[in-house]
């Protein structure tokens, strides 16, 4: 599996646009800045919704109304974040795909997505009886707390990608090499 991923990212790395993007000081940095700044939109909105469910924000604004109204800006932010994130991977495909933290971040993103689906499912199943309560029902509060936890870890692991502690280039232990996806005899980093 790691070899397949390695071959795909080496193929991506061969594109001239990938190299140009990586080597462009302003373009790369603007894309990365946009990726970070969209946190203020997407994560900001998500935190407001989660904090409302936990009873820590907007206690007198109906919970599902708040969630529905903030969904649009949140998804606009997430869309920009996904586009810039894909471009960042495309600019440095080999190193990023073999980053332990990038892989951890991807797993956490899947967990956060499943949790978000469950949160919305529980919200629609629970009806509107609690809508004006300061706190949401227990199951929804658990999902909101998990969402805050997952996204905090996603931001931390995203930040860690910039550090080279576990890069394949430096020779890692067998376990780290496997998890990071290092390939024996690889020639590109």
């Amino acid at each position: 599996m790691n070899e397949i991923i390695y071959n795909i990212v080496v193929w991506m790395d061969g594109f001239e646009w990938s190299t140009s993007l990586h080597e462009s000081y302003y373009m790369y940095n603007w894309i990365e800045s946009t990726h970070v700044l969209t946190l203020m939109v997407s994560l900001g909105m998500l935190f407001m919704i989660d904090l409302r469910m936990l009873g820590a924000a907007f206690p007198n604004v109906p919970a599902t109304t708040l969630a529905h109204r903030l969904n649009l800006p949140m998804w606009i932010g997430f869309s920009a974040m996904i586009i810039t994130g894909v471009l960042l991977v495309y600019a440095i495909p080999v190193r990023t795909s073999q980053s332990l933290w990038f892989r951890f971040k991807m797993v956490l993103l899947v967990c956060a997505a499943v949790n978000a689906y469950l949160l919305h499912k529980r919200m629609s199943e629970s009806g509107a009886s609690w809508e004006n309560d300061a706190k949401a029902p227990k199951k929804i509060r658990i999902s909101a707390a998990l969402s805050l936890g997952f996204w905090t870890l996603i931001v931390i692991s995203g930040r860690f990608i910039a550090y080279d502690w576990f890069d394949c280039e430096y020779g890692q232990s067998a376990v780290i090499s496997f998890v990071a996806g290092c390939v024996d005899g690889q020639t590109q980093w």
Binding site: L39, M40, L70
Partner: peptide, 10 residues
């Protein structure tokens, strides 16, 4: 920063 962004946008 994300929390500041959230409150500012809301």
């Amino acid at each position: 920063l994300a929390l500041i962004g959230g409150t500012v946008i809301a």
